[in-house]
């Protein structure tokens, strides 16, 4: 290796581009071979779509007048029982009555278009919400378990070790089934509660080990200095050890949260309509298998990269004192 002269970077960057282009081409040829018909235009409707909401007559009566022009019409209905005319506004193209028509209560007058949130957006929201709540609870469980793991009390230590080993030694999918079918049935839990519980317990065990490693990485001199100033062990933990440990565990913690978001896709097995389950449901009706799975993957990627950017930013903020 030459020490002073730096070898040029561009041939390697060129090679990288070449490999990426090659991979894309390979993918394209592969789909050509199975004669897959791409229908990307079907995807957007699963994010947001326009639905027609029927508008009905509020009471029996006669259509007295229709006014308005352009996109909407307002229909005045004189109630059969007398009194002031009632008004219904509908889209012009959907108008189903004429002036002088008699209408009964709940008869269709027409429809109004409404923007509706599609299943992919709903699934994405459920995934984000589920991951956030279970991540937050997992963080608290992990913090407490991590502290118990380091406690001088053998009971607390034993319980913490048992919990961590149990969770780390069994598959998350099995844990979700046990949580839903066994604990969920015994305690009569809602499926969402069971899903959040299983994910939080799972994440908590890993976070506990991260927290333990973080606390142990802080030199003993730090707590000795704090104790020598008369701080109690709790005060020392709170003001000296945990803030420093938190800074150190941010990168592994970020990894754990990203894993959690991805692992949350497993709750679809207990019929929680998260992003993955929404994707599966859409495919049964649209047959756009490839497009939907690619879209779902992209959405997970979007959420995880936003999170990792956020934690990276936090990490840089904490690096102030270095």
């Amino acid at each position: 290796m030459p020490l002073k002269k730096r070898s040029p970077q561009w041939p390697w960057q060129g090679l990288l581009v070449l490999i990426l282009v090659g991979m894309a081409a390979g993918l394209w040829f592969a789909t050509q071979r199975v004669h897959y018909e791409w229908r990307w235009e079907r995807v957007p409707q699963y994010f947001l779509y326009q639905a027609d909401e029927p508008q009905v007559a509020p009471a029996a009566g006669t259509v007295q007048a229709i006014h308005g022009d352009g996109a909407t019409r307002t229909v005045d209905i004189a109630p059969a029982t007398g009194g002031a005319p009632l008004q219904v506004t509908v889209a012009s193209s959907s108008l189903q009555v004429k002036v002088g028509d008699t209408v009964a209560a709940d008869d269709d007058i027409g429809t109004t278009p409404h923007w509706r949130i599609g299943p992919l957006t709903q699934g994405l929201w459920i995934t984000i919400w589920l991951s956030f709540v279970s991540g937050f609870i997992g963080l608290i469980i992990g913090l407490i378990t991590g502290l118990c793991r380091l406690s001088p009390n053998p009971t607390l230590r034993g319980l913490a070790v048992l919990y961590i080993e149990l969770i780390r030694g069994t598959p998350l999918l099995v844990q979700i089934f046990i949580f839903y079918f066994f604990i969920g049935t015994v305690l009569n839990l809602d499926r969402i509660v069971a899903g959040v519980g299983a994910l939080a317990l799972f994440a908590g065990a890993y976070i506990a080990e991260i927290v333990r490693a973080g606390i142990q990485s802080i030199p003993r001199g730090q707590s000795e200095a704090a104790r020598s100033l008369g701080m109690s062990s709790t005060e020392t933990m709170l003001h000296i050890v945990l803030p420093q440990a938190f800074k150190r565990v941010l990168p592994p913690l970020a990894g754990q949260f990203i894993s959690l978001i991805k692992d949350s896709s497993l709750v679809s097995v207990i019929a929680i309509t998260d992003l993955t389950k929404s994707g599966r449901e859409i495919i049964t009706s649209s047959f756009a298998t490839f497009e939907i799975w690619f879209t779902v993957a992209l959405l997970y990627l979007l959420v995880t990269s936003v999170l990792s950017q956020l934690l990276f930013w936090l990490e840089r903020r904490f690096a102030r004192s270095d």
Binding site: G221, E224, A225, R227, L229, G230, I240, S321
Partner: peptide
């Protein structure tokens, strides 16, 4: 013991300042 330590200051070989505090 915490009350006793309040009255006894200690200076360490490796300073042990709190790095996350000014």
């Amino acid at each position: 013991l915490n009350a006793v330590r309040r009255e006894v200051g200690m200076v360490f070989q490796h300073f042990n300042l709190f790095p996350h505090k000014t």
